[in-house]
Nucleic acid binder design. Structure first.
Length: 563
RNA sequence: UGGGACGUCGUCUAACGGUAAGACUGCAGACUCUGGAUCUGCGUAUCGGGGUUCGAAUCCCUGCGUCCCAGCCA
């Protein structure tokens, strides 16, 4: 058997099963989202696992929507989920299924269990069911309806189906064991009455199967071999097995793994929904969101996400991955593929006093030092430029190598310049513009006399600059664990008020003018940026995907900490 | 307090009775027309206590800690 996928305990189980021929040499998995929200990075882990494992062993993976709750599920979510799985790079081919495809079969199976006296119609209210269930430490009590006859149950269940009874008035329950220490086995509900429009079956049904009565059988119908799910379903496995055994049908193996947790990030559909509904973010695809739609808009590549998912591994340990690892993988990927350009995010005007007024020179710049095939481009240089405000200090601190009065630096791909003067706002004292002289002998960026400069900074010619809006993102939450809150507060108290910073006056080199939406770029020395769909003709909007590793910022922070 | 599961560097993962390894992070250095990238080096871990064994992260017992379960959600 091939062995190139990342090793993990599930893969080992599959290897064993292949060895023992448990499933006749087949590997068939499925990704089973409920269409009640957008997919997030945690789902990516499951998608990569399910599709990755099957692909490794020549198996197939189904996409199956777990749509057994008509009240929460919508077509909008179905569409976005399919789009996202495709974007991530996976293909379910013709194997698109819905749990609702099996409603008829599931109903037949329920009738079968009634006939076996393994299921009964219960008239207890939701409240009563809860009381009868007992607690973690006390056994439950049997429902007074538990011993109805097969005939009565069959009749009642049929009438539940035809819509004779109101919502919540009755349920179909499995007859298992009210004293089981596993609460899932205390006569779990199989069917409930819900008169609601289903996104696919419309008003055809008014009774809907519970997850437990639908999932295993759906796996069975689809001949799934390894049904991979998260840890919280561990307690459900006995029930999963029980239904399949009672029904005497094909029995897949459920295997549980640890759900992804990320620092500074919330991965709960409910809480993400809250952020969207309360307007804390601009939508499901806000670039600060951990949804795959948001991450995509932020500029992440599918490759980076897949690499991340492979790197984090799979186990049963409840852990939390550091966000830094995710960021590492985008940088690693984008470093190889993102074309470089120069963009000034916070512009500071620079006049090169000894440079001819109307002269413009085209400077040759490398598109990607990591990829020779990316070639070069021309960047216009002229007398008035913009540089980054951060690249000039009137009083340079220790270890600051950039421009300051009297100091010479290199303008990337252009000339050495020396700062000769500073113009300040008379009232505020703010630096308005600076003056420099250039050394014509250093054209292209090298001095014939071999002298060195400590620093190279980026620039944009003022007359040729393209205006753009740049959106910088920081963690959505201030705390590593956003769920850790003081008494009476909820996770929204941990929201980072500075998670979005908009820079409306960025200046880009002209080659960026026609950058298409979604294109990814490295702005040299600044980070990776992606063109946002909010861009309009003549008005580009960029999202910062990730910053570059910033040694100076680190030094500065450390020095400030000392002071 | 019933049941289920899990405890290995700061974080995540490996080691399947035989030298505790890798990645990320951090720190130091080299190189550099991006304080980027790259390269080199450094650091820190088997939850505690007993046992079995020539030998234990691994097997057994015990204690401790963490997570999940009392939806007619999934």
């Amino acid at each position: 058997m091939s062995a190139d996928g990342p090793s993990n305990f599930i893969r080992d189980i599959i290897l064993d099963d292949l060895q023992s021929n448990k499933f006749g040499g087949r590997v068939q998995t499925r990704f089973p989202p409920e269409p009640n929200g957008y997919l997030h990075i945690g789902h990516a882990k499951s998608i990569c696992l399910n599709f990755g494992l099957a692909a490794e062993f020549g198996g197939k993976t189904n996409l199956r929507f777990d749509d057994t709750n008509p009240e929460k599920e919508e077509t909008e979510y179905v569409d976005s989920i399919m789009e996202t799985v495709k974007w991530l790079g996976f293909d379910w081919e013709d194997r698109l299924f819905y749990a609702s495809d099996y409603f008829g079969q599931l109903y037949e199976w329920a009738v079968q269990l009634i006939r076996k006296e393994k299921a009964y119609v219960c008239d207890l209210t939701a409240d009563q069911v809860r009381q009868y269930r007992g607690t973690l430490t006390e056994p439950g009590r049997e429902s007074p309806y538990r011993h109805r006859s097969v005939e009565e149950n069959t009749d009642l269940f049929a009438r539940m189906r035809t819509g004779e009874f109101p919502d919540g008035s009755r349920t179909l329950r499995a007859k298992i064991d009210m004293a089981s220490p596993n609460l899932n086995l205390r006569d779990p509900v199989m069917y409930r009455i819900v008169h609601a429009e289903h996104h696919r079956t419309g008003a055809q049904w008014c009774i809907y199967p519970m997850y437990d009565f639908a999932h295993g059988q759906s796996d069975s119908v689809e001949r799934i071999t390894h049904s991979i799910c998260t840890l919280e379903f561990e307690d459900h496995r006995p029930l999963y097995d029980w239904y399949l055994e009672q029904l005497g049908i094909y029995h897949p193996q459920q295997i549980e793994f640890d759900r992804l947790n990320l620092t500074y990030t919330l991965l709960s559909k409910r809480k993400l929904l809250t952020l969207v509904e309360q307007g804390r973010v601009s939508g499901w695809d806000d670039p600060r969101m951990p949804t795959l739609a948001g991450i995509k808009r932020r500029g992440y590549t599918p490759e980076a996400i897949r690499n991340f998912c492979n790197a984090i591994g799979v186990s049963k340990t409840n852990g939390t991955i550091e966000l830094a690892l995710l960021e590492h993988h985008v940088r690693e990927d984008l470093n190889k593929r993102a074309p470089r350009s120069m963009a000034v995010l916070r512009p500071l005007r620079v006049v090169i006093d000894n440079y001819p007024e109307r002269q413009v020179e085209e400077m040759e710049a490398v598109n990607n030092p990591e990829d020779a095939a990316a070639g070069t481009r021309q960047v216009p240089f002229s007398r008035v430029l913009y540089i980054e405000q951060d690249d000039f200090r009137e009083d340079p601190p220790k270890q600051y190598y950039r421009l300051s009065p009297g100091r010479e630096v290199r303008l990337r791909y252009a000339y050495f310049v020396t700062c000769t003067g500073v113009v300040k706002d008379e009232k505020t004292g703010e630096v308005r513009e600076i003056h420099c002289t250039y050394d014509p002998a250093t054209r292209g960026g090298n001095a014939p006399d071999g002298r060195k400069v400590k620093s190279t900074i980026h620039w944009v010619s003022a007359a040729h600059a393209v205006d753009a809006e740049v959106r910088l993102y920081d963690n959505l939450f201030l705390k590593e664990n956003p769920n850790e809150t003081a008494e009476g507060e909820d996770f929204t108290a941990n929201l980072n008020p500075q998670s979005l910073e908009v820079l409306p006056q960025a200046k880009l080199e002209p080659s960026l003018a026609g950058a298409p939406v979604g294109s990814r770029h490295q702005f040299e020395r600044m980070g990776y940026f992606c063109v946002d769909p909010d861009s309009a003709a003549g008005r580009l909007v960029f999202n910062r995907t990730a910053g570059l590793r910033d040694t100076w910022a680190r030094i500065e922070k450390r020095e400030k900490g000392k002071a």
